[in-house]
Design a protein around this nucleic acid. Sequence first.
DNA 1: CTGAAAGCGCTTACAG
DNA 2: CTGAAAGCGCTTACAG
Lengths: 340, 340
Amino acid sequence: MKRPTIADVARRAGVSKGAVSYALNGQPGVSEATRQRILAIATEIGFSPSSAARALSGATARAIGLILARPARTLGIEPFFMELISGVEAELSARSYALTLQVVADQNAEIAVYRRWWGERRVDGVLICDLRTDDGRVPVLEELGLPAVVIGGPTGTGGLPSVWSDDAAALVETVEYLYALGHRRIARVGGLPELQHTAIRTQAFTEVCRRLGLAEAVTASSDYTGEEGARATRRLLSSRVRPTAMIYDNDVMAIAGLSVAQEMGLAVPADLSIVAWDDSPLCRLVHPPLTALSRDIPAYGAHAARQLMQLIEGSPTGGLEDEAPQLTPRGSTGPAPGNR
Amino acid sequence: MKRPTIADVARRAGVSKGAVSYALNGQPGVSEATRQRILAIATEIGFSPSSAARALSGATARAIGLILARPARTLGIEPFFMELISGVEAELSARSYALTLQVVADQNAEIAVYRRWWGERRVDGVLICDLRTDDGRVPVLEELGLPAVVIGGPTGTGGLPSVWSDDAAALVETVEYLYALGHRRIARVGGLPELQHTAIRTQAFTEVCRRLGLAEAVTASSDYTGEEGARATRRLLSSRVRPTAMIYDNDVMAIAGLSVAQEMGLAVPADLSIVAWDDSPLCRLVHPPLTALSRDIPAYGAHAARQLMQLIEGSPTGGLEDEAPQLTPRGSTGPAPGNR
DNA sequence: CTGAAAGCGCTTACAG
DNA sequence: CTGAAAGCGCTTACAG
């Protein structure tokens, strides 16, 4: 089956190729009656303009890129990325933009792909995740002039617009909530320390603990896997004065922490309160269900995609502060031991 | 910054554009010395050939498509898709192929996107997931002549090659293992009944139970969410003669089932044995860790991608049977009650 | 081994 | 409002 081209539509409509192009793209230059006739014929013979030809004649590639630079084993277990992608897609598909996804080993590989995509004109813009402190991708994207929106921030994004949420505020709210429940020894299992949002949360944690006069404000670092979450929990719960509340930087580690607590004979929340960052269906699967910091991740992705579309279309955009994560109390948090 | 074109490379090398093209694509027609000089210049000025121009002049788009037609909420919680994608990517990136990903609401939307991609020449081929019994995508892809590999099967794929694993054999092995442990009342919480692999598993389950003389071979249907897994478990465990072992079609439902058992005061595995299909790190996070049917999902994705590459390059391919899922016993299965 | 040229299928000024 | 034509950046026969 030969794929129809614009010439086929033009011939059947008895007009020039230019007229078909104008009709399809909603440009002035054809009468309304002609436009309708052309559109009907295009639909009838199943014509879609070649994306390559369009891109080559100066229009856009109608595709954006997203690169994930995490090991496959941590990508799969975190619902975050799939939820983000589905939100991005919702925004893109409304405009028939495609999403080009790539999974790479590290940031150098990621940067190489940006350079290649730029040279190939394969994408009109990119969304970048997992912002690091002093992120090497930012200057490269700025140098290339490849439109980019950072998912994260708001600092360290150079001149790139970002879509971000106020993690510091959410962390402060969480610690104050635990403090109100009587907790005085609060520990935290943080994510990869080189990630910007980890640093923001760690700093907020340290500051609010100091302000409230909590001495033992330990943050353990991890790689988001259940194994590391369990190991960090075991270590913290084995310390001389063990914490009565723990905050985890993702749901998988929180669930692993819950298991460790149970294995060590501690009741949750009677002996230990647990809070998970990034709510997910997993948090409601376990017993007790986990108190979590919830946010609408698909919406987050959709907002980032919308900002990028704007940027590609040439409207300046200053980025967007999304809603801060909401503390959603469930069964895993309660009054501190000896405080009931 | 203006992006360099093939003409820039040709000018600096003092050759024609044709010569540059031959050099870059490893075609005969240039001397080795010239080729090396051209390649060095291309690297130096950061030249990558425009994917649009390449695609337009008859070469391939160097992209394949993958469409996921599941609701966002079930996409995120199942590690399956991300693991599959990371395996696909590993195969693609070695050849600098891009992956175009789309998330749609239903199969009609999916078919519409295939038609559009074909018309746009946006992808050279597609990978299709979640094969249904009497799947509407198969005849459309065959009619279009869009190269496609089915992830699933091996039946119901029409003339399309498929990469599949022997789910029936794995299910039989599982039931026989539970039977050997003394279980005589085994129930199953299956996935979406319209999916081909669900049907295959259900049929295998029914047959092996009949062969072993197990009367109560109930299969409950579900949508893979924890909520439905929990509901089905509650219903099955409340029946007059409750099962002593349960098999779940995904890990999330198995974890939900474990929670329900605990909530109903049943010890796992003393009162109830649990088996999860598709092992994942989640299965090792809970207590007891779940016995599971494990397979290498990234490898599965990589194999499918490789088959598709072959198909695109014109080599006929008959599909591939991947390894059957392996039963991995952990703490959630044990002797049937009264059989210890 | 190399160069000049046609052509892929669009978009978009430029004439009429 | 419409048509003829140039041009996007490649690839690939076709001459030399």
